[in-house]
Design a protein around this nucleic acid. Structure first.
Lengths: 205, 205
DNA sequence: GAGCATAATGGCACCGGGTGCCAAATGGAA
DNA sequence: TTCCATTTGGCACCCGGTGCCATTATGCTC
């Protein structure tokens, strides 16, 4: 087992060597179960490992940290976001493209909404995960900044692309928090509203 | 020693009981020295405590965590920000008030700039501190959201105040990163530019 | 089927941040 | 001097995370 992320696409399905005894997916299920029952902080890695029938040491071969368990396939999904950006028409206003892509990026299968909600409750409300999230969001911002830079003819590291990426992330988080706080709201609607506000500089109605 | 933050203003200067053997300020100085020489991660709390001539256990009575050492008087400064907001004319456009206050909030005595720079380099570049910063920024956002809510006639927890606070924080961080990456830039200028961009929705320019 | 190369496992020892507990040290006041 | 309030710091402990390595499982070759 080399890296920890998703396995490369070109891995032969049959190889010599011992089979992996579990999967990120399975561990995630087991862990969420425990998080639900005991809370994130009160759930030790030992407990997750035991509950999944693996050694604690092995757990850390599937996830870099306990924090990372809740992120599912986030990193891989960022590729989808890049693709969506690539498909936006070049004559569309930049912030409009950002709005559209971010909203679509966060659209989840209705059946998955409850799970998504639990996941995001953890990420946005457990301090340890809240803190850790900053590191994950860095990749998200990089995708947005890269696109913004291309559209503006600037480098991704320049002020405006970075500011746009940071701001888009910020209002998205505000939208998520609002969605979590209320019941009966459509996440995409809230995101759309928040990103629209951003695009108009928070003025007018 | 009750809380860990700044002592309440009304503490009598002479009280019974053993004197405190050091101060947040002194520990900060000692710690920064070590962070500079060895790096943040390589500096253990043990080392800081030893270097300051106190016990490791005592360190945690002055700071909640090793991460908190780098934040100086951030929390107390938030009160100043609140005051600045209170002084803005009510007929000033909201985002203009935010821009003005945030820029002024981040104005530092020229003599303190190098120190501020080192501090922010740590916060923005060391992953552990980057992650932890989210929790500290939460208080910052609350101040902005509170003011925005008042101006908009909404609750602080509502979507728009939160989105504005998150977005203002975001573009400020972008400005900080840009300031750190370049030499010979005035922080306030960069912040002003970033927040102006935000106010106009990142169009024109 | 034996042996070999390959890969994952999981135990162990260790590190470092953080906490609860408590006896000892300090210093003002009666 | 005694008493009380307060801080100190050592100790044991918990937990996340890592380096190391012998063990185990598997496919392939002879």
């Amino acid at each position: 087992m080399e890296g920890i992320g998703a396995k490369a696409v070109s891995e032969p399905s049959v190889r010599p060597g011992r089979r992996r005894s579990t999967s990120q997916h399975e561990l995630e299920a087991v862990a969420f179960e425990l998080f639900e029952r005991e809370g994130f902080d009160a759930t030790t890695v030992d407990a997750i490992a035991k509950s999944a029938g693996i050694g604690r040491r092995t757990f850390f071969r599937y996830f870099e940290s306990k924090n990372d368990v809740v992120w599912g396939s986030f990193t891989e999904q960022l590729d989808h976001m890049r693709e969506r950006f690539a498909q936006r028409p070049a004559d569309e206003p930049l912030m409009e493209s950002v709005r559209a892509v971010v909203v679509e990026f966060n659209r989840v299968d209705p059946a998955e909404v409850p799970k998504h909600r639990r996941r995001m409750e953890l990420i946005l409300r457990v301090p340890a995960l809240q803190a850790h999230s900053t590191l994950r969001y860095g990749d998200w911002r990089a995708v947005v900044a890269e696109y913004a830079a291309k559209r503006l003819g600037e480098k991704p590291a320049a002020l405006r692309p970075q500011a746009i990426a940071y701001a888009a992330l910020g209002v998205s988080l505000a939208a998520y928090e609002h969605w979590l706080a209320e019941t009966d709201l459509q996440l995409c609607d809230v995101l759309d509203e928040a990103l629209s506000e951003l695009a108009r500089g928070f003025v007018l109605g």
